[in-house]
């Protein structure tokens, strides 16, 4: 009996060891470094300095950090709303009865996911938003209009980044919603139609309640990846050698520019730990909300 209880743990051991090595250990090690003065002047001989790095880290959380935090919340919210709405619309269209070659469309829609994010972002930067060579300004000029400096202004840069994020994130969301829609038994809709229900009634009373448990984990994952998005904002507006002047820092790009470039690993680790804790609290809160919503 005792042996039977232990056996599952034995089978789990390899996975737990791998998770411990690649997830838990780096977090613990970052926590350890955050209490030392590990920087280029004490690279191989760091010493314990208590909470000094944390005290210094809170100076990073100045007015610039607060506006970056608010911008990140707005960025996350806007992106989630757009992703859900557009992905839902596309998924519904893909599930239209009688649609020919829908597998071809699905494959095409997955393309942005197949490309490395870094390449996609730089293609958007040079191919679409570039003032000189970008497709958008070429079109405007053909129409006799002046080109727009898409990535220079704060608002236009923010919207441009949102567009690129949408392009990159849609395949995942479409795939999830498409799968969720296909799992709904068509009999529900047929019965509702016989009862005289319209599109919105069916949407509210059948589709949403049935797809919600399937989509919820994907939404949580996407909220976090959007919240800690770095590549898009950094590569489009902050990349060294081609900064555009737009100040649309998110929490991650702001702390990167304030702390990580200093080569002070103790200090950077302290900031990482604070952001990590913020995300953990955020995660617990979101999970609680979802659990309550599913009841």
């Amino acid at each position: 009996m005792k042996q039977n209880k232990l056996r599952p743990y034995l089978y789990l051991t390899p996975s737990l060891i791998v998770i411990g090595l690649i997830v838990v250990f780096p977090i613990l090690y970052t926590g350890y470094i955050s209490f030392t003065n590990m920087n280029i002047y004490h690279w191989f001989n760091p010493r314990f300095i208590g909470f000094d790095n944390y005290a210094k880290a809170f100076f990073v959380f100045d007015s610039g950090f607060l506006s970056a935090l608010l911008r990140t919340v707005l960025w996350t919210f806007l992106n989630m709303v757009l992703q859900m709405a557009v992905a839902y619309l596309i998924a519904v269209l893909l599930n239209t009865e009688g649609l020919r070659a829908h597998k071809v469309y699905k494959t095409i829609l997955m393309f942005p996911w197949a490309m490395p994010g870094y390449v996609s972002i730089l293609l958007w930067k040079m191919g679409m938003f570039n003032n000189e060579y970008g497709l958008l300004n070429q079109w405007l000029r053909k129409l006799g209009l002046n080109g727009v400096r898409w990535l220079d202004g704060n608002v236009s840069a923010f919207l441009s980044c949102t567009l690129v994020n949408l392009w990159l994130a849609l395949p995942f969301m479409i795939m999830i919603i498409d799968g969720a829609l296909q799992s709904i038994d068509k009999a529900y809709y047929e019965s509702a139609t016989l009862d005289g229900a319209g599109f919105f009634v069916k949407l509210r009373n059948i589709t949403v309640p049935l797809v919600r448990p399937i989509i919820a984990p994907a939404v949580v994952i996407t909220v976090f990846t959007t919240f800690k998005q770095f590549d898009i904002v950094y590569l489009l507006t902050q990349q060294q050698g081609s900064k555009t002047g737009a100040d649309i820092h998110t929490v991650i790009t702001y702390t990167y520019e304030k702390a990580f470039v200093t080569n002070n690993y103790g200090y950077s680790s302290a900031i990482s730990m604070i952001i990590f804790l913020l995300l953990i609290f955020f995660s617990l809160y979101t999970n609680k909300e979802l659990r309550e919503g599913n009841r």
């Binding site: 400096r149 050698g241 081609s242």
Partner: peptide, 13 residues
């Protein structure tokens, strides 16, 4: 000059 001022644009021109 072009506003971009980045390596790719300037060298391409």
């Amino acid at each position: 000059q072009p506003a971009d001022g980045d390596y790719n644009t300037m060298t391409a021109l």
